[in-house]
Design a protein around this nucleic acid. Structure first.
Lengths: 353, 353
DNA sequence: ATATTTAGAACAAACGTTTGAGCAAAAATA
DNA sequence: TATTTTTGCTCAAACGTTTGTTCTAAATAT
């Protein structure tokens, strides 16, 4: 029933060594005659031989498996990325095992142990927390690591991310070009690098327009809750209501929308909104939400390709690449011209001083 | 550097057999003295021994791995289910490898081969297509299979699904109780069992209210496109415009919303809407969308538990269980009382005849 | 004709576990 | 005391590959 090298070997009268070499494509390298090779391949496919991965792994110390460390698979952003990575891996004969850290550093540790005990050949991770040590350690001594979305600034680990800075710059600029001067930014996890970059883009866009004094950055988590509470708070003080809000993630945006609705304000008439992250549902909201889209599919594919490069090129194994993919500004209906509220702005400005 | 049974064996002067038995928790079963057991466990944890999964698999023919066959990981519904399964698996010491069939029967075949060549201990699948043969075959002769969401009606393979019939019945009843008599149902893949059940619930709810003659079932795919086109078509003929639409999935719903917006109609004033599938974004639409939620997390957990039961209980290995979990009617703002359009209804009815 | 190279393949040793069988010493029984 | 049972462990064979070494026959060179 179960075909192995030796079952074929017996039937054919050819040694397992020869069969193994033929089947792994090393026929000429070991000068196996074309005739023998042909016989072997024919028989192998005839009896549907499937090599035992366990035996191969045991012998070669390679598992043809990559580990995927994701913070939250139920987050569509990471689901999309994962999906792309998995496809790319499968097409290269690798399989991916996913670990969901649930944005918890402790869980992340367990997940890493699990992946390592599985002897994965490499890891693609969107790390949570700021401790780069484990990842550097793994990358240097155990298995190559590629970071995705989130990364560490010291240049030892490869990563692929999107141009968070420019994305945020563009989004803010869109608001500014529509006459908005009082733009609040609701951020996510302050410690995460993508968040820092986005905040940087927001600030620089304001500065470029001479509006640096108007910068207001609120919040501290990539969650609906955070978006909701900060907006609620923001709108409760009638003194300095912004004309536009920039939500730094899809989840934050949802919270913002909820709070705005509860305040009986209308987007975009009363307040303009723009967000980071693309999500199909944003096109179906009323109004549809302008946003900065990240190329999740490309990011996933690229991360996988980078990892496979590392796995194959033993010579250039110390190549570290840092790639930033462009974001895309998706203009919908949630941003409109700021209609003559400039007086308010100036008044606000004066009040600030 | 790398610890193995024999490295420990040498250091301790205890045979690998004994160490193996202690570490796999079979100490008493093989009458290993408590003293020896203590020494072994202490040393194992001291040197951070990690068993080689490859060697274990090779020897035992078990991989401690389950395969997850999903139609589309980028669909939040399946992402949620997958997430739950993965967590449950990890907590039991298993890892999951995901294969994304992209709703394509051919791809599904390849994915199955891939999973089998990985020698997964079991498979949890949301199959696409209607061919139950492969799954029965696998379940009977290779590895236990548990189906999730989609299933086959002949009783040989275990499955867990939600009560699609009752969910649809409830949703339709909500519309009826709000005075709606002209309710259109836009369905997904006609061949899929969940879809059939939902349609059944819709029809029976109408019948119960004596409205069976008003039944209208349109469409044929779980896609935005399908929801959009069918609604577009539906609204273009002004003659028999429904007062409510029941979308049989989240994707269909998005299409419906788009078409309604383009027709300059307002939900729920002009038309009431209800949908199958829960998705957080539905709470943030204007208006928020009433819907039938499925307990994705429970479904995933349960499927995993069912599979592990099969993997462990060798005696009752022929236990097949079919579980239906309750759906939840989430009432929001997209359904309102049908205000006196009864004349229209009756008129429509007459026109129909 | 002898010595050397080459082609083509087989041998056998790992890789790290698990597990049935076996064996000596200690304990219990007769 | 002699026999049986129990206790506590070791032996060694598998599991299915890969791969360095070796071997034989044929081909080439001297």
């Amino acid at each position: 029933m179960k075909e192995t090298l030796s079952s074929i070997s017996q039937r054919l009268g050819i040694s397992t060594a020869t069969i193994s070499r033929v089947l792994s494509g090393n026929a000429k390298k070991y000068r196996i005659s074309e005739k023998t090779a042909a016989i072997v391949t024919a028989e192998a496919s005839r009896c549907h031989y499937i090599p035992s991965l366990a035996a191969q792994s045991l012998r070669t110390n390679k598992t043809k498996t990559i580990g995927l460390l994701m913070p939250k698979l139920s987050n569509p952003y990471f689901a999309d990325i994962s999906s792309a990575i998995i496809s790319e891996a499968n097409s290269k004969g690798y399989t991916a095992i996913i670990a969901d850290t649930m944005e918890n550093v402790e869980v992340q540790k367990d997940c890493i142990s699990a992946l390592l005990s599985r002897k994965v050949d490499g890891i693609i991770a969107a790390p949570c927390g700021n401790d780069s040590k484990i990842f550097k350690e793994i990358n240097a001594r155990i298995a190559p690591v590629v970071l995705i979305d989130r990364y560490f600034e010291d240049a030892t680990i490869s990563y692929v991310t999107s141009n968070n800075y420019k994305g945020a710059f563009d989004a803010t600029s869109l608001l500014i070009n529509n006459g908005h001067k009082n733009i609040v930014c609701i951020q996510g996890d302050e410690a995460s690098l993508p968040n820092k970059k986005r905040v940087g883009g927001y600030l620089d866009a304001l500065s470029t327009a001479g509006l640096q004094d108007n910068a207001r950055i609120l919040g501290n988590a990539f969650s609906i809750q955070n978006g909701y509470l900060e907006t609620k708070l923001l709108l409760s003080s009638s003194s300095n209501r912004p004309s536009a809000i920039f939500a730094l993630s899809y989840t934050i945006l949802l919270g913002v929308i909820k709070a705005i609705k509860e305040a009986s304000l209308v987007i975009p008439d009363d307040i303009s909104i723009i967000s980071f992250d693309d999500n199909i549902s944003l096109d179906y909201m009323t109004p549809s939400i302008s946003r900065v889209g990240q190329p999740t599919e490309e990011m996933g594919q690229l991360a996988a390709k980078m990892l496979f490069n590392k796995l194959n090129d033993n010579d250039t194994n110390e190549l570290v690449s840092h790639i930033e993919l462009s974001t895309e500004l998706l203009i919908r209906k949630s941003v409109i011209k700021n209609n003559g509220a400039d007086e308010d702005k100036d008044k606000d400005k004066n009040e600030d001083k």
